[in-house]
């Protein structure tokens, strides 16, 4: 696993596939936090939109980076298809968490916030950043040509799911009460953003939906990805 992670790092660094998403990310974070503010929780919550989009982009660019032949050889070396895909997920998760850490600490390091916040708020903000990053990974890895054969269709679907993830809560609010469960089908990014921004007034149900459901959702997506990838290994 360590050997793979080291190799994946070299491979990824030399691929330059991270440049576009990271340029977007750094520009978006610096633009977003350019003015001082006393709205700590709402700022942290909206920062999650940036983290999510960047992580979707990074994960989608990385997950099928390695050539198919080299993938086959790496699987033979590792002796396990599952371990291979776990290592890939491990690598991109490390990248995503690094993105989340940067986005979280950036306003604190640059003293953007003019007001303080309780430790619980800080913890909630950090957990939400990390969870949103993992949601981005969970979405980004799915729409690759191993799982969706036609690349253009995969990109279109990825774009649609990303937009629906960002707008999920607003869409659900427009729906009849009986159909609001639909919001749970899409990655719950908007729910997380809402909860962090309104943490002190949010109901327990919303807190759970915003902070626990993303963990379960990401976990289910990653398990499903592992299953699908192994089943659709080399067609």
């Amino acid at each position: 696993m360590i050997a793979y992670l080291s190799y994946a790092f070299k491979y990824y660094v030399r691929s330059y596939r991270y440049i576009a998403p990271l340029v977007f990310f750094f520009v978006a974070v610096s633009m977003f936090y350019k003015d001082p503010t006393n709205q700590v929780m709402s700022s942290l919550s909206f920062g999650n939109f940036i983290i999510f989009v960047a992580c979707v982009w990074l994960a989608n660019g990385y997950i099928e980076l390695e050539d198919e032949t080299q993938q086959q050889i790496t699987i033979l070396h590792m002796g396990s298809v599952q371990e291979y895909f776990l290592a890939k997920l491990g690598f991109i998760s490390i990248v995503a968490i690094a993105v989340a850490v940067y986005a979280y600490f950036y306003p604190f390091v640059l003293h953007v916030f003019t007001a303080g916040v309780a430790p619980v708020g800080l913890l909630v903000g950090f957990a939400a950043s990390a969870e949103t990053a993992m949601l981005g990974v969970s979405v980004g890895i799915f729409f690759n040509n191993r799982i969706i054969a036609k690349k253009s269709r995969g990109i279109l679907l990825l774009f649609m799911v990303t937009v629906l993830s960002l707008a999920g809560r607003s869409i659900a609010d427009q729906m009849p009460h009986s159909l609001r469960f639909v919001a749970f089908i899409f990655p719950p990014v908007s729910q997380t953003v809402f909860v962090v921004g309104n943490w002190w007034s949010a109901a327990l149900y919303d807190r759970v939906a915003g902070l626990v459901w993303p963990i379960i959702y990401s976990f289910l997506c990653l398990v499903l990805y592992l299953k699908l990838s192994q089943r659709k290994l080399y067609y």
Binding site: E66, D67, H77, G79
Partner: peptide, 18 residues
């Protein structure tokens, strides 16, 4: 029993490396 793969050396027909 995929661990048996470790006993295999494989040369693919097409080689693409980074």
């Amino acid at each position: 029993q995929p661990e048996v793969r470790k006993e295999v050396g494989y040369l693919p027909s097409e080689v693409f490396y980074y």
